[in-house]
Design a protein around this nucleic acid. Sequence first.
DNA 1: CATTGATATGAATCCTACG
DNA 2: ACGTAGGATTCATATCAAT
Lengths: 371, 371
Amino acid sequence: MPKNNAFPQELVNTIHLGDTIETLKQLPESSVDVIFADPPYNMQLEGNLKRTDGSVFQGVDNAEWDKFSTLEKYKKFTRDWLIEAKRILKKDKSSLWVIGSFQNIYIVGDVLQELGFWIINDIIWSKTNPTPNFMGTKFTNKQETLIWATPDKKTKYHFNYKTMKALNDGKQMTSVWEIPVASGNERIKTREGDKLHPTQKPEKLLYNVIISSSKRGDLILDPFMGSGTTGAMAKRLGRNFFGIEQDEKYREYAISRIENEKTISDDFTDAKFDIKAPRVKFKELVTAGYISEEEKIFFKKTDKYAYVSAEKELFYDGEHFGISKLGGKLSDSEANANGWDVWFVEREQKRIPLSVIRTEYREKELGFYEK
Amino acid sequence: MPKNNAFPQELVNTIHLGDTIETLKQLPESSVDVIFADPPYNMQLEGNLKRTDGSVFQGVDNAEWDKFSTLEKYKKFTRDWLIEAKRILKKDKSSLWVIGSFQNIYIVGDVLQELGFWIINDIIWSKTNPTPNFMGTKFTNKQETLIWATPDKKTKYHFNYKTMKALNDGKQMTSVWEIPVASGNERIKTREGDKLHPTQKPEKLLYNVIISSSKRGDLILDPFMGSGTTGAMAKRLGRNFFGIEQDEKYREYAISRIENEKTISDDFTDAKFDIKAPRVKFKELVTAGYISEEEKIFFKKTDKYAYVSAEKELFYDGEHFGISKLGGKLSDSEANANGWDVWFVEREQKRIPLSVIRTEYREKELGFYEK
DNA sequence: CATTGATATGAATCCTACG
DNA sequence: ACGTAGGATTCATATCAAT
């Protein structure tokens, strides 16, 4: 198991003013749980990096950025920050999100894969209120795309499956999210009353990203912090954050925005749904006396039964098996069955599935109760 | 204007049995209106995927045509066929569609842009009935992505804007299309009753692609023809097609499928909606005598007026202007106005907008009538 | 014939902690 | 790193049989 490093405590829940790549280089490797990135888009105009609305992210007056006038330069920029992102993501379990539109997302996705990132899903943010195409020259550009990936094929990721299902009326959440563009009260205004940031992401989008792929206490890093939606949603959901932003004005507004945000109760987050029950082995039930070594273990409601073997697994037809393997075998399936549901014991002349015994064991011996 | 070449007449509305890249190399450059391509997706599959009931999901397993050993090889394959696609697309006006999913679309999009293709839209095919994620490990993969691009930034493309708007209940069609997966009767079966092709595309998808981006009589080329949906929809909509398919069985079924397809009437295609009225210059109306050189041209219903200038444009305040530029100027707008709607002439003591005069001119002199 | 219910299936990078 | 056993897991729709 690769060692995870501690993220510098003094940086937790702060926004660093500075260049993205330079700042990332200062951070320890294998120290971050989730990265969410909303990088500038390559508009291929006069050597400036621009946001989707055409506003300048970094202009030609900065000598370094002047180089990014072509596709290749944008690709280099993308590769540079993604290499650092990969380095600082935890090696055992972590994931990265990047949002973009057709101007840049294909480049981002290609570089990701070249660097060995492994795509989990691509998510479509389908805007319920997109800007129409005024000229009638093409289809209304309705969506932006998020790529969700692990830094390596072998790296695990956190996914609050049940939480997302609960948030979606009890159905599996899909990769297409219908969310309106940030507007009204949600949109941060300057003191002069103008919108602060041209591409402020809606809270609901970041809420989904953070609640689905992290847990309480995790560290979420945003290399292009902007108006601070990532930090605000991280705080709301009880996560920690670290932001990087090179524009002092954005940073200022983001800090005060996040200060005003409150952390909500566990009852409304993933902590309510995605609780993993402790693993139990069949042996444990025998050792703890919940199942006797002599009793018959019945296959479903049939006449077939096995005995507890010397290894405290099942003994059937002269051989030793685990409950899942033998369950699968008798079920005429190539796959394992869920052994806890196909094997029964008799208690007071009724057949009780092993899963019920397991629940009793978890409650009485391990103090774990299902919600 | 670059010269377009004729596509070989004997190949029109046929399916060629052979390798995609080799076949494309035989075709003349600048000879095709639209390419729709559904290349292999390079999915990395290991083992079987089973449902909870033990049945095996039949995806594209054992599909030899989807096996590429490395990302680099897939990228080379993509580059090779796209180079040929670019060569045979008409230089003045044409476009290309490619469909894919997250396993390959970022590579395709990146190569497209590297080769100088210019993305018009990316379209999300949002499946109304996607395959769920059986194991609950990630979001349900709901969509596939189509990239629509011209072979070069300067190349024009055909877009039946009004048709798509009419097909979308009178609202601009967006880049997110809700379409079910091909199933039931639409799914082509073999004589043995199995599905013919693992990845048959729905007719509605190809219908949208073809009707939006081509006109009657155009040639649509499909380099990976498969079950022939492209050919069938091309025929239904009165377009020509050319397909390439390397599997004899698929080709056979596709040919008979297309034979059974009927071409529908003009009334139900783009020919009904997207008729472009001929462009008219203000001068033409003067030359043809629809406007006299001496008369006053009034700005809306105000007192302001201009005269026809010597150059047969407008003369106002000592300067010469086109009708749109001067219209915008007087409208206090930075943009040009639609000159045909803001300028009026007097006929029988009533002010008539120039657009009415233009309509009369189009009908009587050019034989063009609005539908 | 209408309605209900059982069954089949779709481009899928579809498990993971522990020893 | 790898094998093994424990454990968790699906939705919309079309077809067809049964009522």
